[in-house]
């Protein structure tokens, strides 16, 4: 068993009187690809934002490599659901953003950036502005931008949520291919069960609000994974179990509203 690089201990988040996330524990091992599933409003994004340092827990501690997380940093790269490329920078300069902040020489920045643009299949688009790209291409650039910084962890908050179904499946394969090659540690929030099983080495299901971890399952599928794996018995079996678990929570969430 590999060593945990991220530990979440008793993390709770309250917004005024609402408890969004209740005492949550989570251990993430090096090279894990953890997908977090749950109904909307269950606090899965809150958990991710706390790990990113963009939100502070009301109580509890998050540690990365034994150091307490108090704010955002370059060691945790993030890809957001919304398109967050800087519109005034070209694709290339967007990918260079973090490298430039670290004071790397320009030649080295370009070297790294071109490498990652090639990996996400955007070689010919280095000098385009974000508004000239499709949604899928923008998210691929955002992925390249996060990876170029060589973070300890990659945090992804429904990064493909705004994309159409076909683009989304291609993006999943692309990300999986990159993960299989780079072996980054990934925390990936989604509400798409197929996506969670296909991408994850572990799937975590969160309950309806107040969110807590309800189910934590290892995905028994070998790498490298091909998209055809989605029709195998192992895949559908896990998917069925997760669908059941998530459905219960979605129903519970709806009961809260009415």
């Amino acid at each position: 068993m590999s060593i945990d690089i991220l530990t979440v201990r008793g993390v709770e988040r309250r917004f005024d009187t609402t408890l969004a996330l209740q005492a949550t524990d989570l251990d993430v091992a090096e090279n894990d690809f953890i997908t977090i599933l749950g109904p909307s409003g269950c606090g899965k994004s809150t958990l991710l934002r706390i790990v990113a340092g963009l939100d502070q827990p009301t109580s509890g501690v998050v540690q990365l490599d034994g150091h307490r997380i108090t704010g955002p940093g370059a060691d945790r790269g993030m890809v957001f659901q919304s398109y967050t490329l800087f519109p005034w920078l070209t694709v290339l300069d967007n990918v260079c953003f973090g490298l430039r902040e670290r004071g790397l020489p320009r030649a080295q920045q370009l070297d790294i950036a071109h490498g990652f643009l090639a990996k996400v299949g955007l070689k010919g688009f280095a000098n385009h502005y974000p508004k000239q790209l499709s949604g899928g291409m923008q998210q691929r650039t955002a992925l390249a931008r996060a990876l170029a910084n060589d973070p300890r962890m990659l945090l992804m908050d429904e990064p493909f949520g705004a994309l159409d179904h076909q683009t989304r499946e291609l993006m999943q394969e692309l990300l999986l291919g990159i993960w299989e090659a780079e072996r980054k540690t990934v925390l990936f929030v989604t509400h798409d069960i197929d996506e969670a099983v296909f991408m994850g080495s572990r799937v975590v299901v969160m309950s309806a609000r107040p969110g807590r971890i309800k189910l934590d399952r290892v995905v028994p599928l070998a790498h490298p994974r091909h998209y055809s794996i989605k029709t195998t018995a192992a895949f559908t079996e896990l998917k069925a179990a997760l669908t059941e678990a998530v459905r219960t929570e979605v129903l519970a969430a709806q009961a809260q509203v009415t």
Binding site: A52, G53, L54, G71, P72, G73, A74, R76, G77, M78, F80, S82, T84, F86, F97, G98, E101, R102, A142, R145, A146, N149, L155
Partner: peptide, 20 residues
Amino acid sequence: DLVEAAYTLGVSDRGLIRRV
């Protein structure tokens, strides 16, 4: 969200003003 993205890329407060 651009501000948050910049912070996760390791930008400093001064860098945020200057570069974002």
